[in-house]
Amino acid sequence: MSDHVSEQSAPAKRPVQLFRNMSAKIASIPMILTALVVFVGGTTWTVVHSFTSSRLLPKLDFVGLDQYERLWSTPRWLISIENLAIYGLCSMILTLTIGFTLAALLDRKIRFENTFRTIFLYPFALSFVVTGLAWQWILNPDFGLQQVVRDWGWESFAFDPLNNSKIVIFGILIAGIWQGSGLIMCIMLAGLRGIDEDIWKAARVDGIGTVKTYLRVIIPMMRPVFITSLVLIASGIIKLYDLVVAQTNGGPGISSEVPAKYVIEYMFRAQNLAQGFAASTMMLVSVVVILIPWAYLEFGGRKRG
């Protein structure tokens, strides 16, 4: 405040832009340093070392693209990518659909809305490890879901995804969606509450059905909410690790491996840092390739238009 006053009283001296809001700038120095050193510095270091032959200890003898060639000819990595793609696509679509449907149902001014909201949100309060363990038990053929249904009398019922290498990723997907859709529901519900009541009245006057109003009017209006949800879901997908470790540990065989697990295991168990770095660089590249054009269109485009 006093700065401001003195500036006005002495207009001849032009304030140096750099020193404005000094205290705020000083306060943000630690965060700027963290961002530069930890994020940018750490990422650069990792990418540089992915071109070396580092084993247990990082060292700088460059071998070009050898690590990447090996990475893309490793069946385990290819399976990991495939699994992540299946999990990512299904999780994106299903979490959004289920989250939005639940939110829309709750938005119909039903009774006990608070209770339902709490129930749906509860899984999100559990960590992935707990979620994974719980679903490992639920999907266990001997005392889980399959056995319960058989005890009810449906003797031939078979549902054992975790021990079948062809569908094991869907067993993990079930747990992931169960855990994640509650949060998306809450965000969607907040978005729905932000829609002006007059929109609904107008739709009713025009004689548009409820479902059609949601699909044609409400959802386009909720674009920012959907974007937020997408970012949240996407970041959850790329870091998928602990759920798999707790639920299947990559098994049976290597059929439920995911990229993050490959990175950890090659860095530490296989004592091959460069291979792990190459894999993590590929994860970063895939995020960048998808995110940057999208963010450009989403945020850069609007400013111009």
């Binding site: 069946p75 385990r76 065989g253 290597i254 059929s255 090659y266 296989a270």
Partner: peptide, 12 residues
């Protein structure tokens, strides 16, 4: 680790 990965896949 690579041999273990191969064996895990082979056996299952």
């Amino acid at each position: 680790t690579q041999v273990e990965d191969l064996m895990a896949e082979f056996w299952s």
